[in-house]
Computed example of a mutant assay.
Amino acid sequence: MGTELDRATAVLAGLGVTTSLVRPPYGATDATVAAVAADRGHAQVLWDVDTRDWWNRDVTITTERVLAGAHRGAIVLMHDIHPTTVQAVPGIVDALQDAGYTLVTVPQLLGPDVVPGATYVSG
């Protein structure tokens, strides 16, 4: 994981982007992953609402799963590589905002005091 994280960090740096957050692929983490992330100054971000959009690839099901799991501080997992997920987003945003939610990025949600190596699943 160290090499992959180093390469990703270098690519982002080349784009002028820095971050202290990482999402382990598939959410696969353990003590070794946490140690590598901590060593590089990154906190791990997982999620507490899994839309399983990669499996269902259905606008309605993805939308229902987000709305059913929504709560203050929720981190929602969706994949923008699936057209049905992208199609679901406008309706999800409208419904969440209508319900009184304010949508923020993960860095905004967690704030500046994330702990390298720690794992966050909600804000």
Rank of each mutant, 00 (worst) to 15 (best):
M1V: 09
E4S: 06
D6V: 05
D6E: 14
D6M: 07
R7A: 11
T9C: 10
A10I: 09
A10S: 11
V11S: 10
V11M: 12
A13N: 11
A13W: 00
G14W: 09
G14V: 08
G14D: 09
T19K: 05
A31G: 11
A31I: 03
V33N: 07
A34P: 06
A37S: 09
R40G: 12
G41D: 14
A43G: 07
Q44L: 15
V45W: 00
L46I: 12
V49E: 01
D50R: 13
T51Q: 10
R52S: 08
D53E: 09
W55Q: 13
R57T: 10
T60P: 04
T60E: 14
I61Y: 06
T62S: 06
T62R: 04
R65S: 08
V66E: 00
L67H: 06
A68L: 14
A70E: 03
H71S: 09
R72E: 15
R72L: 11
G73I: 01
A74M: 03
V76P: 01
M78W: 12
M78D: 13
D80H: 14
H82I: 13
H82F: 14
P83N: 13
T84D: 15
T84M: 11
T85W: 11
Q87S: 13
Q87K: 14
A88N: 05
G91K: 05
D94Q: 15
D94R: 15
A95C: 04
L96H: 00
Q97K: 13
Q97A: 09
D98W: 03
D98I: 01
D98V: 09
A99F: 01
A99M: 05
G100M: 00
T102I: 07
T102G: 08
T102F: 00
T102E: 15
V104D: 03
V106P: 00
G111Y: 00
P112R: 10
P112N: 08
V115M: 03
P116E: 06
P116R: 04
P116S: 02
S122A: 10
G123H: 03
G123C: 02
